[in-house]
Design a protein around this nucleic acid. Structure first.
Lengths: 205, 205
DNA sequence: GGGTTATATTGACGCTGTCAATATGTGGGA
DNA sequence: TCCCACATATTGACAGCGTCAATATAACCC
């Protein structure tokens, strides 16, 4: 029943390229119900194959989730680069663009953002995953290295910014940033948060 | 076979106070194998009861994990207060004590720290959990409110600090802060990170 | 003392990940 | 061209999981 006779119309073998189909199905399930909904069997059902078919392409569930996380990191990295490319020159402005890109991505795709930090469910040793993370970090370092001699090295500043942005986005996504109290989460508050990091929390001398 | 005849030596009913025993068993499993190891059935086995006994004390797994998270937040809150009580007066010094307390707690009990941010596995509407979180936030607000008129409100500064500390501790715990590159994670680096937040990432004018 | 209620047990259901054995289609070499 | 070897997919099984219903047992209160 293979549609392909010659000229490799798209696929080969039995299903075609099941691997891609599994990834697509997994993303659909992830967006709908979070990482918990991405089970091997549900993905297989959605892709129209039997429950053991995915084993030929992903050793186990962790490998599948790691593949997803790797792609998500790449998407986020691309998005950051895209926004930075059309940003101005000032250091502070560019760092705000970076923070804003991460925040928008997280709020738009909370399930995807959550997954990339679920290291208990991922294979931290995966090369593709680490490479995708490195790309984002490199981007930050590049921004912070333009200035000449700062009191703090670029690494410390990059980690601080990356940490705060991630922490803030995490809390915003969970919807429990400051339960019952500070519900101001709009753009003014977001700007103020980043300002606190960029300009410092302690009063300037 | 009840040891208690009169004077309520410790317990009552069948097991005694199974609820506490379940919490103890759950903490043991959590510390050993992370949140994934805290299954209803494993907890029941460890407490010496059958698999359905916990249902009388915790509606479901999420309720059990929420009870754990609530206690962990209280422990962290107490630890922060304890350290702050014996700290000096300077704002910057006290904020460093705060950050240091969270970092030490996270590194000492990574599984516990991870759990309290796993909102997908917790009941975010739980009053005890929210109360325990609020206590820590209140602590931060109290520190940041002593100064009179800052350009930024205490809430923005509190969220920024809390976000960065949480983000940094998370990444440190996962062991993948900056994979293969910046392996400097000792005290000097930690101090520099906090300095970056306190004094600002952009150069002082 | 007896009945009500809280607690614990037993057993079952469907779901999960994973493995082993089997079937089927594909491509390369003779 | 045929056939073998291999990649891929299916079938079936297993243990473990959360959860529910039915049942048993102990404690408390009147």
């Amino acid at each position: 029943m293979s549609i392909s006779k010659r000229g490799r119309p798209r696929a080969a073998y039995h299903h075609g390229n099941l691997r891609e189909a599994l990834v697509d199905a997994a993303f659909a399930l992830l967006d709908e119900g979070g990482a918990d909904a991405v089970t091997i069997r549900a993905v297989a059902r959605r892709a129209g194959v039997t429950h053991a078919a995915p084993a030929n392409h992903f050793a186990d569930r962790k490998a599948l989730l790691t593949a997803l996380a790797s792609r998500i990191f790449e998407d986020l990295s691309r998005e950051i680069s895209r926004r930075l490319a059309r940003a101005g020159d000032g250091l502070e402005a560019r760092l705000r663009v970076f923070a804003d890109a991460v925040l928008r991505f997280g709020l738009a795709s909370p399930h995807r953002y959550r997954l990339i930090w679920r290291w208990d469910a991922l294979d931290g040793a995966d090369a593709a995953l680490q490479g995708a993370m490195d790309a984002i970090y490199d981007c930050l370092i590049a921004e912070l290295s333009v200035q000449g001699s700062e009191a703090l090295d670029p690494h410390s500043r990059a980690i601080a910014l990356w940490s705060m942005v991630h922490g803030y986005v995490s809390m915003r996504i969970e919807g429990n940033l400051v339960p019952g109290r500070d519900k101001v989460t709009g753009e003014p508050r977001e700007k103020a948060i980043v300002t606190a990091l960029l300009e410092g929390i302690v009063p300037r001398r």
